[in-house]
C-alpha cells in the first residue's frame, strides 16, 4: 500500500455499495444490448476528397486506408457476397472515388472495386465498378494496370460482354508503357480473344502477377488464393 493511501476499510460501506451496484448495472446493460451489426443499406453519403484531406491532419495515406476499412465494415462483416448486392453502388462508387482522390497512389480502392464489389451477381452493379476501375486507370495507367487487367477478365467471362472487354484490353495495350508490365497485360486483347475458360485465364493472370513479384502483401496473396480456389470450386460444380 502506498504511504499516501488509506486502507480499503476506510471507504464507507455505502460508497462500496454504490460502486458495485453501478458496475453491475453497467455490465447488465452492456450484456443486454444487441451486438453491432453491419447494415449494407445504410451507407451514408461520402465526404468530398477535399474534406477527407482536411480531416486527415496531413496524413492522407493513413486516413484513406482507415476510410477503406470503414467502408469494408458495411459488407465484409456479414461474411458472404449477398450484402454487397444490397449496397447502394452509386454511393459506394462515390466513396471509392473520394478515397482514391485522397490518396491517389493507394491501390486499395481499386483492388476492392475489381476483386470484391465487381464480382456480384448483378450485371449493372458490376459494370458500374468496372467502369470506375477503367476511369481510374485512364488517369494513371502505369500504376493501375493490374486492376484493369482483372476488370477485363470479368467483363469477358462474368458479364460475357466482348465489346467491353476488348475496349478495356485495347486501352491496356495502348496506354500501359511501364517496362515492368508483363507481356500478357499489354497484349490482353489477343489474350481475351482466345477461346480460354475463366479459370484458365484467371490462373494465368494471377500466376503472372505472383511470378512478377507484384503481390508481396501476405493478406492480398491469401485473399487472391482463396478467390482462385472458390473459382475452381464454382467451375467444378457446373454441369
Amino acid at each position: 500500500m502506498n504511504a499516501g493511501e488509506r486502507a480499503l476499510q476506510a471507504v464507507p460501506g455505502r460508497i462500496w455499495a454504490a460502486l458495485l451496484c453501478a458496475l453491475a448495472l453497467h455490465l447488465g446493460v452492456q450484456t443486454l444490448r444487441p451486438a453491432p451489426a453491419a447494415e449494407a443499406a445504410d451507407l451514408p453519403p461520402p465526404p468530398s476528397a477535399q474534406t477527407l484531406r482536411a480531416a486527415s491532419l496531413g496524413e492522407p495515406a493513413a486516413l484513406a486506408r482507415l476510410a477503406m476499412l470503414y467502408l469494408q465494415a458495411f459488407d465484409l462483416g456479414a461474411g458472404n457476397t449477398l450484402p454487397y448486392r444490397q449496397l447502394d453502388y452509386v454511393r459506394l462508387e462515390q466513396w471509392l472515388r473520394a478515397i482514391l482522390d485522397t490518396d491517389p497512389r493507394s491501390q486499395y480502392p481499386l483492388f476492392t472495386a475489381a476483386r470484391i464489389y465487381a464480382e456480384v451477381d448483378d450485371a449493372a452493379k458490376s459494370r458500374r465498378m468496372l467502369e470506375f476501375v477503367h476511369q481510374a486507370y485512364l488517369k494513371d495507367p502505369n500504376r493501375r494496370w493490374p486492376t484493369l487487367a482483372h476488370a477485363t477478365l470479368l467483363a469477358r467471362h462474368r458479364l460475357r460482354d466482348m465489346p467491353l472487354a476488348r475496349r478495356y484490353a485495347a486501352d491496356l495495350q495502348r496506354l500501359t508503357t511501364d517496362p515492368a508490365a508483363p507481356l500478357w497485360a499489354t497484349q490482353m486483347e489477343i489474350f481475351i480473344l482466345e477461346d480460354m475458360d475463366e479459370l484458365e485465364a484467371a490462373k494465368i493472370v494471377l500466376g503472372g502477377l505472383l511470378a512478377a513479384g507484384r503481390i508481396s502483401d501476405p493478406q492480398e496473396r491469401r485473399f487472391l488464393q482463396e478467390r482462385l480456389e472458390a473459382l475452381e470450386r464454382r467451375l467444378a460444380s457446373k454441369p
Binding site: R65, S106, Y108, F111, T112, R115, D217, F223
Partner: peptide, 10 residues
Amino acid sequence: QVAVTESREL
C-alpha cells in the same frame, strides 16, 4: 488483419 490488401502499408 482486417485489410484485404496493402496490409503492410496500412
